[in-house]
Each structure stands twice: as structure tokens, then as C-alpha cells.
Amino acid sequence: MTPYWEPGTPYGPGAVVTYEGHRYKIIQPHTSQTDWPPTIPSLWGRLSDEDPGDWGGYEKQHPANHQPAPEYHPPPPEGQQVEIPHEERKQHWYDLDDKRKTELEVGGGLLAGLGLLGAGYAMYKHHEKSEEDATDTWAVQNWVHDGEARRIEYGKRGPQGPAQWILNRGKDIPANAIVVGPEHDWMLWICRAYIDGTLQIGKASNVFQKGAVIGYEGKEHQIDTYEILVGDMHGLQWVDASGHLNVENLGLRPVEGGRDKDGSPLYIAEAPHNGATHPGVASPKLDGALIPYGGKQVQVHNYRILCYNY
């Protein structure tokens, strides 16, 4: 089975992946990013579709005369008056010169974005406007921009693999969101959201105040703009783990989760607590999974990690 392309994955010489129903072979070895899909010709070459092989039932079949949908460009954030090129969005805030930073702060929607961080995007630290505020605002706007594009693509083409993150808002949970389990008389789903320069994993439910709850720095944070994991558990499985996570011992490739402030990966966990199973986060740096529960984060020694079947 040809593996599905995933962001945050090192691809070396000879790598072949599935993306949007087609196979691609690596040209330039690299670690993948959300905005570097296999359709970039300098990184990947598309293979013939005449012998697709075993796709596992997840590919989206297209007729021979199918024309790909035009690239979607999400609407700019409120207050944005200057153009922000795609290549510039891939840069860190501190890589931009002072003149460009000023242009973006005034005309790029960053001033409006500061308010969004405090309200909808859960900025962890609240203080007067600073370089750190601008850095967070720049990062979260790019995250939302990319998430909007993926959500629209998902609406047009449906799922492109057994697991896919799509942007979501509020309490309306997509029909094929991956369920972790019931808690009392409601369900819990897997989500992630931007908070304090990180992408943290948490839980979503239509009974929560804003739709999602993320654990960070020992506390629960209510979130109304987040990504939710959709897909098909026929292509996934939960693998037992305990204590400090050793990814190599899983035997299977874990699904992309989040990232910590230092850029290290965070993985999707489920852990039992107080009579229910809860979504959470695990990593080699944590002595067990952390789940948001009861206004704080709870550490659970024995847990499971979500992995692909191949």
C-alpha cells in the first residue's frame, strides 16, 4: 500500500506517496510541510495512474477528463489591506525586515488579529502589544489561512486519506470526525488548536462552551476555532504505550498531531480517566499522556497512540 503524504514527515530518496488520489515520487528529499504538498514540481514528480496498486479504498477516483479544482485562496483576515504572498506566509515573523513588519501591522490585519488571539484563538499570555504579540498573530493567521484552504478542499473532494485535519468552528461537529468515546451522555472527538506558539491536541464536543477544550500549562482552555480530525478508523488503529513515548517502539507510523514550542512533535493519545476515555497528547518529553479534564491537565501513565495501519 502506498502511504499517504503527511506534513511534518521526513521523506528520503525513493519515497513514494499518495496525495489527492495520485502517486508521487520524491525528487528533492526534505521534511514535508503543510504548504509544500506533492503538487510542487521541484519536490515531487507525479507517477502514472495506469497502475495505481493497492490504495486501500481511500483514493478519490476521477474520470480521465477530470480537471482539478482551481486553487482556493481564503479571504483575508478582517483589516487586511496589503497583499501577503504565499511564499511570505512561510517565513517566520522575525525573518521580516522592520519596514515590512510595520506594513503588515498596519495593513496586514495584525492589529485586528491581536483581538482575535485574545478571543477566538486562545493566546495564552495577555499583555500589552509587543513583538511577541505580532509573532503570535502572524503565526495564527497563517495557520487559519492554511486551515481554511484545507477545509474548502475537503468540502470539494472529501477525505484524502484515513485521517485528515480540517478547520472547524464552534459546536457543529463534522459527521465523520474520529470519535474517542462517550463521556457520560456526550461524545468526545479529537481536535487541536494554536495556543502560545504551539499546536496543542485536545477534545471537542457539542456540549462544551465553545466547542473545544485544549490543555496547556496545566490548565484547560476553551477554544472556538480549532482543527478537528476526520477520517476512517479502518485505516487507523490505537497502539498501546506508557510513560515517555518511544515512537520507534510503536511499530506503526503515528498520525500527525501537533508541535511544541521548540518545534518537537506532539502525538495524539487516548487515555482512560474517571470512567471514560479522553483525547490528549503524548511525547518523549512527557512521563505519560496529558488529557484536559476538570479545568486542568491530568497525567495518565498508560495510554494509546493513534497510528496508521501501514
Score class of each variant (00 low, 15 high):
H278E: 03
G21K: 08
G251T: 11
E220P: 00
P74N: 09
Y154T: 07
N309V: 14
L245K: 04
Q91W: 07
V179T: 14
Y216D: 04
G158C: 08
Q80P: 00
Q33P: 00
P76M: 08
V82H: 05
M233Y: 11
P292D: 09
Y154G: 01
E20A: 14
V207C: 05
V140G: 02
L229D: 01
P29N: 10
Y216L: 07
D240Q: 12
G235R: 08
Y72Q: 08
H22R: 15
Q61P: 06
G109W: 00
I27Y: 00
A112C: 12
G197I: 03
K203S: 12
S205C: 04
V239A: 03
Y121M: 11
N206M: 05
G147R: 03
T102I: 14
Q28H: 13
G263K: 07
G181R: 06
H127D: 14
A64K: 12
L188N: 15
D133E: 09
M233P: 03
P174R: 10
Q237P: 00
M187I: 11
G147W: 01
P37C: 11
N309T: 15
T34K: 13
H234G: 11
W165N: 05
P254I: 04
G197S: 06
S264P: 01
Q28M: 14
N168V: 05
D196K: 11
L290P: 00
K99S: 12
K25W: 00
A163K: 01
